[in-house]
């Protein structure tokens, strides 16, 4: 799994890629969310387009990140969830919690609305 970050004004885009399969690497994802709060960035777009495999551990860390950012007064949205990941969001009903986008420009603009 890899984590990359981009900044667009006050929006942090965290891009995950590879397999999100569990274990210590999930701590790095949690830290990436916490880092945004520490740097006073409260708008976070999580890009899952490069994720090739994910299960409930990945969902758990996303929910944890959502909680971290929400408690700081921010918002986290999801970009490019693959068909399989979208299915997991539906099964677990998390689809009712997250705004999801397939177009990055549209997702970024949504934070200004």
């Amino acid at each position: 799994m890899k984590i990359a970050e981009d900044l667009f004004d006050d929006i942090a885009v965290i891009r995950l890629s590879g397999k999100v399969i569990g274990g210590p690497e999930l701590v790095e994802v949690k830290e990436a969310f916490q880092s945004q709060v520490n740097h006073d960035r409260r708008n976070v777009l999580l890009d899952l387009g490069g994720v090739t495999w994910m299960d409930s551990s990945g969902l758990g860390v996303i929910v944890s990140g959502h909680t971290t950012i929400s408690r700081a007064g921010g918002t986290m949205k999801i970009l490019n969830a693959t068909k399989k990941i979208h299915e997991l969001f539906i099964i677990t009903k998390l689809i009712t919690v997250f705004e999801t986008y397939t177009d990055e420009k549209e997702a970024l603009e949504s934070f200004q609305a």
Partner: peptide, 22 residues
């Protein structure tokens, strides 16, 4: 069944739900 309310936002506890559904 999926969790409801505050439990929906728990960090854990979705594995069996996912396995059952898939």
């Amino acid at each position: 069944e999926p969790a409801e309310g505050e439990a929906l936002m728990a960090d854990r506890g979705r594995g069996i739900l996912i396995a059952r559904n898939l």
